[in-house]
């Protein structure tokens, strides 16, 4: 009887834990979203900080605004759009793919391509120099030098 009691109690406790754990994960989900959004947004006052890092007044206001929008049930992309429509794409640490930003996104690969091309050309020209046979005159020069060093 005692044992049955403790089993029931144990299960009860387990249910309690799982039930209470649920709102806890919801809170941490919310916090995760909050922090990930803050880290996506640039503070325009001190331009090399996110609004999560910045102590500027505006960053504080924007953090409060993000929190308010999250509580009101806005999606992450709604909040990001809200900021971009007011402060411009510059606030986004991950700039969107647009005709204007094509060079920004693909520029590095273009330069990499140019680099590889130059490398290939240089390597090829060096190889062709190496495989060129010596002329008679050059052979004589080489032999002369070798003879000298043997003396």
């Amino acid at each position: 009887m005692n044992r049955a009691c403790s089993i029931v109690l144990g299960f009860g406790l387990l249910i309690c834990i799982t039930v209470s754990a649920k709102p806890l994960t919801a809170v941490s989900d919310f916090e995760d979203r909050y922090h990930s959004i803050l880290n996506e947004l640039r503070c325009l006052v001190c331009q090399n900080q996110t609004i999560a890092e910045s102590n500027a007044d505006l960053a504080k206001d924007l953090r409060a605004e993000v929190k308010k929008m999250l509580l009101e049930g806005a999606t992450d992309s709604e909040i990001i759009d809200f900021m971009a429509s007011r402060y411009g794409d510059f606030v986004l640490y991950r700039p969107p793919l647009k005709p204007r930003t094509l060079l920004l996104w693909f520029g590095p690969f273009i330069f990499l391509g140019i680099g590889l091309l130059v490398l290939a050309l240089v390597l090829r020209s060096q190889r062709s120099v190496g495989s060129m046979p010596l002329t008679e005159e050059e052979k004589m020069q080489v032999n002369a030098i070798l003879d000298k060093s043997e003396d």
Partner: peptide
């Protein structure tokens, strides 16, 4: 001026 960011408005 790096602080002058063109406004989408």
């Amino acid at each position: 001026d790096p602080t002058a960011v063109s406004s989408p408005l």
